[in-house]
Amino acid sequence: MNLAQFPRRRYTTGSTPIQPLNRLSDLLGGPSLYIKRDDMLGLAGGGNKARKLEFLMADAIAQGADMVITCGAVQSNHCRLTLAAAVQEGLQCHLVIEERVPGSYRPDASGNNFLFHLMGVDGMTVVPPDTNMMLAMQEVAERLSRQGRRPYIIPGGGSNAIGATGYIACADELESQLFDEALNIDTVVCASGSGGTHAGLVAGFHGSNSRIPVVGINVRFPKEQQEDTIYRLASEAADRVGVLSVIPRENVVCFDEYVGPGYSLPTSEMVEAVNLVARLEGILLDPVYTGKAMAGLIGLIRQGYFTKSQRVLFLHTGGWPALFAYTDLFYADWARNQ
Rank of each mutant, 00 (worst) to 15 (best):
P213L: 08
R150A: 08
A191S: 11
I298M: 12
L297D: 08
E142P: 13
L315R: 01
G196S: 09
G318E: 02
P129N: 01
D39S: 08
D286N: 07
G260P: 07
A109P: 12
R211G: 14
S15Q: 10
T70R: 01
S192N: 06
F55E: 00
I212H: 03
P266Y: 04
M57G: 10
R23M: 03
L315D: 01
T187G: 03
D66I: 13
I18W: 05
V241D: 00
V68H: 02
G318N: 07
L323W: 07
S15W: 02
T317C: 09
E272Y: 15
L313A: 07
A84K: 06
Y305C: 12
V68E: 00
L280S: 10
M124H: 03
I97Q: 02
G319S: 10
D59C: 04
V189Y: 03
I301L: 06
N113I: 15
S110E: 08
Q303S: 14
M133F: 12
I301G: 10
E236R: 06
L329E: 04
E89C: 13
L24Q: 04
A58S: 05
T125C: 12
L233W: 00
H198I: 13
V246P: 09
D328C: 15
A332C: 11
E173W: 03
I35W: 00
R9G: 01
L91Y: 05
S192F: 09
N251S: 15
L297C: 11
S208W: 06
V271C: 11
